[in-house]
């Protein structure tokens, strides 16, 4: 029933994305060799977030699916974030 937007993703898209992901991995490894203090954590997680966006949108084809899936995924990620945040509220101020 959703066949009209159900297009076949070409092989090369995956190869481009794969190349991008590998480059990001290497960047992430290189960056941590430079001493940036707490920024290191931030940058490493930021790059991981960018990588996972690619995986989610292209490999897991969220980009081509019903919007509902994207909303749910974002909600779940936010949920995990909020749970970590609330738990840390205890530890940060103890």
């Amino acid at each position: 029933m959703e066949h009209e937007k159900d297009h076949i993703i070409p092989y090369r898209t995956f190869l481009y994305v794969l190349a991008g992901l590998i480059v990001l991995t290497l960047i992430s490894v290189t960056v941590t060799k430079i001493h940036l203090g707490t920024l290191t954590v931030f940058i490493a997680l930021l790059i991981a977030a960018v990588k996972s966006t690619f995986v989610l949108r292209i490999f897991m084809h969220l980009k081509f699916e019903n919007r509902m899936f994207t909303i749910m995924v974002i909600a779940v990620i936010l949920l995990i974030g909020v749970v970590i945040f609330i738990t840390l509220l205890d530890y940060l101020y103890r």
Binding site: L79, V82, V83, I86, L89, D90, Y91, L92, Y93, R94
Partner: peptide, 21 residues
């Protein structure tokens, strides 16, 4: 309801901020 779990732990030595939230 997902974010109220701490009220089972009011006497478990949580931080003050966590307590009142």
């Amino acid at each position: 309801g997902y974010f109220v779990w701490g009220h089972h732990m009011f006497t478990a030595n949580m931080s003050g901020k966590a307590l009142y939230i």
